[in-house]
């Protein structure tokens, strides 16, 4: 059997090897999942889909650690059940939010953890070799190739900002906790979707209800075409630059062309007008351009979206420091600002 400490560890870090061992020893079976486990799994998914204030997250995590071994076991079992429900919903955008919840949870518990071995142990449970630092002034060291398995959304996690020497990263305690948190995000995200073979019918029913509930929120997502006619003055600086370069006949690289096309499609510019925008390109071929624009617009199967600001920076297409994280967000803000101003001037 397992100790209460192991159970507590497994409930804090349900993606760990210890958690899998607990489930195995406890004889966890999908056909005999208690109602409270299913309920907890639904709660996890619903809570994960909405951003919360820091205090709300902390309350959510703290409450889950108070209780008997039965309650802790419910938490451990709820994790794989939630993953099955998410997979049955088959909406990949929810996977990232679910992974985000566990990245936050990991950091929350690790920052409260006083035992150094627990921190190093969690790394090893996620197949990442971490050791106490051999150099003074650091808490732990991680091999570069292991470090590169984490998620790098934040600047502090970027490799360029690490203390890197001969293939080893040296981290202080706080950064090591953040590394483990981002590694857990990656591990949870990459473990989804799971196989749906032999999934009980009641799981499918619950996932359908959940999907409908969450789809309601999705329907409320913004339709950029509702912003009215395309307005070049509202383009974010990156898109305005690519657009004017193309019109001027400059040779814009592939990521630039792709992102401009996806942006123009997203804001509702007609295909003919987009194709016209590319006419100035030195190697313009109308047939090829039209085919590609139509594919981007989803006339084939997949519909493509423009890259986020972070990606635009990676492509070296970002040209300004806008207060947004996505070029479409910039356009929406500009258009909505203009609409508000128009409405105000009309009422004056």
């Amino acid at each position: 059997m397992f100790s209460i400490d192991e159970l507590r560890f497994a409930s804090k870090f349900p993606f760990s090897a210890t958690s899998r061992q607990v489930l195995k020893l406890n004889g966890f079976e999908l056909n005999r999942v208690p109602a409270q486990v299913l309920k907890k799994a639904v709660l996890l998914i619903v809570f994960a889909q909405k951003p919360h204030k820091k205090a709300e997250y902390e309350k959510f995590f703290s409450e889950r650690q108070i209780g008997s071994s039965d309650l802790l076991l419910t938490d451990v079992q709820a994790f794989p059940v939630a993953k099955i429900l998410l997979s049955a919903m088959n909406q990949p955008e929810f996977f990232d939010r679910f992974a985000d919840l566990f990245a936050r949870q990991t950091f929350f518990y690790l920052s409260l953890e006083s035992n150094k071995e627990t921190l190093l142990g969690l790394a090893n449970e996620m197949n990442s070799k971490a050791h106490p630092s051999s150099k003074q002034g650091f808490f732990a060291q991680v091999a570069l190739t292991d470090f590169l398995e984490a998620n790098f959304r934040e600047d502090f996690m970027k490799l360029v900002n690490q203390q890197l020497d001969s293939g080893t990263i040296f981290l202080n305690r706080n950064d090591f906790c953040r590394f483990l948190s981002e590694l857990s995000r990656e591990r949870v995200a990459s473990s989804l979707p799971v196989s749906l073979e032999n999934v009980p019918k009641n799981f499918v029913d619950v996932s359908r209800q959940l999907k409908e509930q969450l789809a309601f929120r999705k329907r409320q997502e913004f339709d950029f075409k509702s912003l009215g006619s395309v307005d070049q003055d509202a383009f974010p600086p990156c898109m305005a630059k690519i657009y004017s370069e193309l019109l001027a006949g400059q040779n814009v690289n592939h990521p630039g062309r792709f992102n401009l096309a996806t942006f123009l499609v997203a804001i509702g510019m007609p295909t003919d007008q987009i194709v016209d925008a590319f006419k100035g390109a030195p190697n313009f071929d109308e047939k090829v351009t039209r085919y590609q624009v139509e594919r981007i617009a989803g006339h084939g199967k997949a519909k493509y979206s423009p890259s986020s600001c972070a990606k635009m920076r990676e492509y070296e297409l970002c040209v300004a420091n806008c207060p947004v994280t996505h070029p479409l967000q910039f356009y929406r803000n500009q258009k909505q600002g203009a609409k508000t101003a128009d409405a105000q001037s009309a009422s004056e």
Binding site: D155, F156, K158, L159, V160, N161, L164, R313, E314
Partner: peptide
């Protein structure tokens, strides 16, 4: 990014 010094903070 490490090679080029991109996202240096």
């Amino acid at each position: 990014d490490f090679v080029t010094g991109t996202n240096l903070d």
